[in-house]
Amino acid sequence: MTMRCTVQGLGWVTTAGHGRRGEGRACVFTHGPLPKPPACASLAGGLRRFGRLDAYTRLGLAAIALALEDADLAKWNQKRFLGLVTATETGCFKTDEKYCHTMLPDGGRFASPNLFAYTLPNCMLGEASIHFGLSGPQFVVEDAGSDMLAGVRAGLDMLRFGLCDTVVAGVCNTFIESDTIAGRCPPGAAFFVLAKDSAGELSLDGDTLRWRDKPVASLASLVNAVGDTGRAS
């Protein structure tokens, strides 16, 4: 069964910068250190702890914030039943390392509970849910596929199986120095706000993702294709 949806919002943060639909910025995923996450309006004020969060959570939150702002869904009064899913390969490996450095000395006496809480990659989704009032299904797909589309596919599946009608789906990978561990996916985050729509331009048939009926080869190509469409009025 082919699942179709419309893209209501898009936000991305990569080594080359950040963007949303219609801003004319090309999205490129390359290996290398990421810039500081952008100061998103919807993250200001309400999330004073943003600067103290781990790099993975900051990166994911920034891209989700951009996508929700683009979809006019960043502001809320009541919790919304929106799904939330991300793919990741490297997840919170950097936080794992930092936590280990608090655990290894002194027989673990000074292991940091604050860092430990963020050694699960879904806690980034939890932070997004708290900040943006999301209450739908959520989980992380840990996947090393080079097309980085596992999260978008999982999001479309959530729509297809009726787990929710709107989902925020994408990918989030932090930068890891190459001498530590070999990550196949370049760092960066991109999230789409997808809404079930039988006439939508994004579709999933089996494992094949299509944008305007043409197969999508990679996350970057999908971001650029959607980004060129401009923001929906």
Binding site: T88, G91, L120, V140
Partner: peptide, 26 residues
């Protein structure tokens, strides 16, 4: 170390033809 690579290891061990994905939901 990376759970993203776990499906490859499990698929090899259990002789499952297609490599899948790890679901992380705490």
């Amino acid at each position: 170390i990376l759970p993203a690579h776990l499906p490859e290891i499990v698929a090899r061990r259990l002789a499952i033809p297609r490599v899948g994905r790890n679901i992380s939901a705490a």
